[in-house]
Amino acid sequence: MNAEIKFKKQSKREIILSTATQLFIQESYIAVGIDRIITESKVAKMTFYKNFPSKENLVFACLQELKLEMKIAVEEQISSKSVPLEKLEQLYMWYINWVNQNGARGCPFHKARMDVGSLYPSIQIVLDEYRNWLFDTTASIFKEMQIRDPMTLTHLFLSLLDGLINGSVCEEAPIEPEKTWNYINTLIELETSSM
Rank of each mutant, 00 (worst) to 15 (best):
I16S: 06
V59H: 07
N97I: 00
W94H: 14
I72Q: 07
G167V: 03
Q22I: 13
N166I: 10
E144P: 05
E144I: 02
L160D: 02
I125T: 12
Q101P: 06
K143Y: 04
Q22H: 15
L63N: 01
L158E: 05
I16F: 08
H155E: 07
L127D: 09
T180D: 07
I16Q: 10
V126E: 03
K143W: 02
L85Q: 12
Q124K: 13
R13Y: 02
N51D: 09
T39I: 09
L88Q: 01
K55F: 13
R36A: 14
E86C: 03
A173V: 05
D162A: 04
V32W: 00
Q101Y: 09
M114V: 13
L91Y: 09
E171W: 05
C107K: 04
L66M: 10
Q146H: 09
N185S: 11
E56G: 11
E178R: 09
C170T: 12
Y120A: 02
A3W: 15
W98F: 14
S193F: 02
I78L: 00
M145P: 06
V169M: 02
E75G: 01
V59E: 04
K111Y: 07
F60E: 04
A73E: 10
Y92F: 12
L66T: 08
W94V: 01
T138N: 01
K45D: 11
E178P: 05
D136Y: 10
P174R: 01
K8F: 15
Y49E: 10
K42L: 09
Q124F: 06
F24W: 15
L160M: 06
E178L: 04
L119F: 12
D35N: 13
D115P: 15
L68P: 10
M114F: 12
N166H: 06
I184H: 00
M195S: 11
E171Q: 12
L23W: 06
I78S: 01
Y120D: 01
S140N: 12
L119K: 15
A61W: 00
R148I: 03
D115W: 09
A112I: 10
C170L: 12
M93V: 05
P177G: 06
L164S: 05
A173C: 03
T186H: 01
I15S: 03
F24C: 14
Y29T: 09
L85A: 08
S122I: 10
M151F: 03
Y130R: 03
I184T: 01
S18A: 15
C62V: 09
K42C: 07
I25M: 14
R148K: 11
Q77Y: 05
E178I: 08
N185G: 04
V74H: 00
I184K: 00
D149Q: 04
F52I: 08
L134N: 14
T21N: 13
Q22R: 13
D35Y: 12
F52D: 06
N182K: 15
L63V: 06
I72M: 03
W94S: 05
V32R: 14
K12R: 15
K143A: 08
K50V: 04
T39Q: 10
A31C: 13
I37F: 06
V169W: 00
L88M: 02
T154A: 11
